[in-house]
C-alpha cells in the first residue's frame, strides 16, 4: 500500500492537502505519482490565480499520459512550485515534500471538511482508487 501520511487530507483524484496556518499546500499522492510513472511536465497556475474545489487547476504529464490536477479547496493561489518547471521528476521523488505544487489561500473553510481523511483515502485506495 502506498504511503499515506496521517496529517494530510485527500481528494478522490489523488491530490493531498495540508493546513499551514490558514493556507493550504497541495500536491499529488505517492499513489498518484506511482500510477503516472515518470513525470516529465507540470503546468501550474500563476500566483494570484483563482482555483475552485474539484475543478482542474493544472496538468501533470508523464511519458505516456496527460492528467488534470484538481483543487482540493477553492481560493487564491499564493505560491507556486516553480522548481517543477526545471525538475518535474521531483514529483516522483518526493511527492509529499519538494514535489508540492501550489499553496492556496482558501475562500471557503467548509470545503476542508469535505476532503478525505488519511483513513478514508486508504480505504478508497483499497477499493481500487477510482
Amino acid at each position: 500500500m502506498a504511503n499515506v501520511p496521517k496529517d494530510l487530507k485527500y481528494t478522490r483524484e489523488h491530490e493531498w492537502a495540508k493546513q499551514e496556518g490558514g493556507r493550504v499546500r497541495v500536491g499529488i499522492t505517492a499513489y498518484a505519482q506511482d500510477q503516472l510513472g515518470d513525470v516529465v511536465f507540470v503546468e501550474l497556475p500563476k500566483v494570484g490565480a483563482k482555483v475552485t474545489a474539484s475543478k482542474a487547476f493544472g496538468v501533470v504529464e508523464s511519458v505516456k499520459a496527460v492528467s488534470d490536477l484538481f483543487a482540493p479547496v477553492s481560493g487564491e493561489v499564493v505560491e507556486v512550485n516553480a522548481e517543477l518547471g526545471q525538475k518535474p521528476e521531483t514529483v516522483n521523488a518526493d511527492p509529499y515534500g519538494k514535489g508540492w505544487m501550489i499553496v492556496v489561500k482558501p475562500s471557503n473553510k467548509a470545503e476542508w471538511d469535505q476532503l478525505l481523511t488519511a483513513e478514508q483515502y486508504e480505504e478508497f485506495l483499497r477499493q481500487g482508487g477510482h
Binding site: 510513472g37 515518470d38 516529465v40 508523464s62 511519458v63 505516456k64 521528476e89
Partner: peptide, 9 residues
C-alpha cells in the same frame, strides 16, 4: 508490460 523500473530509467 508497459514498464518495469520506470520508462526513463
Amino acid at each position: 508490460p508497459v514498464q518495469y523500473a520506470g520508462i526513463v530509467e
